[in-house]
């Protein structure tokens, strides 16, 4: 009997501990979500531009887009963060912590989205362009009204993948001293010599990715009305 009450006592203690942790972890979640949301909003339109650059008729633009994708995809995001925040000041370019994060993340994700969208755009039948041309549509109208909506549908599963990866990649901003979720948890773990905060952080990540997965699923369903 003694062991059971002991166990209950431990459980209550643990719950209290976790509750005490929550404010710090929640403020970490806020930073995580902020990085996540800003990156998404910036990188998706940038990704469309990168894709158009890769498909440009001008060789020089194609080459530049290719170079950009190669450099950004070919180096770790962590390195890019360090380079922008610690490296650029050496040549006199200084960004705040948060701005450095936004620049690195949106440039990085734009490259990945760019490649996804390029594939999507290339997969649209040439006949769609010709039909639009015969209907008098301008290049801009053709892209925005005919091509892009179909590209979004086709690339949604791949985009969803990147969105989920992004949730987890936000943990990299710890390197610039921003207290996002994982850093907040690690500080508590080191201070209290326990793994519990990290487990709680893991649960938070699961909740976030779970919610986004659901949202993206619903978007896919919304686009399922044709084909």
């Amino acid at each position: 009997m003694g062991t059971i009450s002991e166990l209950m006592g431990n459980t209550v203690e643990l719950l209290n501990y976790v509750l005490a942790l929550l404010p710090a972890l929640m403020s970490g979640v806020v930073i995580t979500l902020k990085v996540f949301a800003f990156t998404l909003v910036l990188s998706i339109p940038m990704g469309i531009l990168v894709a158009l650059g890769r498909l440009s008729r001008l060789r020089i633009i194609r080459r530049l887009a290719q170079l950009y994708i190669w450099v950004v995809r070919g180096t770790p995001l962590l390195l890019q963060l360090i380079f922008i925040f610690f490296g650029l000041p050496m040549i006199g370019i200084v960004f705040s912590r948060f701005n450095s994060v936004m620049i690195a993340f949106s440039l990085n994700y734009a490259a990945y989205y760019g490649e996804i969208f390029r594939g999507g755009i290339a997969s649209i039948d040439r006949g769609q362009y010709e039909a639009a041309e015969m209907l008098g549509m301008s290049k801009r109208q053709t892209f925005l009204r005919v091509i892009l909506p179909q590209v979004i549908k086709r690339t949604l599963p791949a985009v969803a993948n990147e969105v989920i990866t992004l949730v987890k990649d936000t943990s990299l901003v710890y390197i610039l001293g921003l207290s996002e979720l994982l850093r907040a948890a690690k500080i508590a773990a080191n201070r209290d010599v326990t793994l519990a905060p990290l487990v709680v952080a893991g649960v938070f990540y699961l909740i976030l990715t779970g919610v986004f997965t659901k949202v993206l699923q619903q978007m896919e369903e919304r686009y399922a009305y044709y084909e």
């Binding site: 006949g127 010709e130 109208q141």
Partner: peptide, 22 residues
């Protein structure tokens, strides 16, 4: 192969150009 716009309804396919272009 007709090249209809798959994401638009029949009516939207027909109305797209008169409304948006003209």
């Amino acid at each position: 192969n007709f090249n209809l716009f798959p994401h638009l309804s029949v009516l939207e396919n027909i109305m797209e150009s008169p409304v948006r272009v003209y």
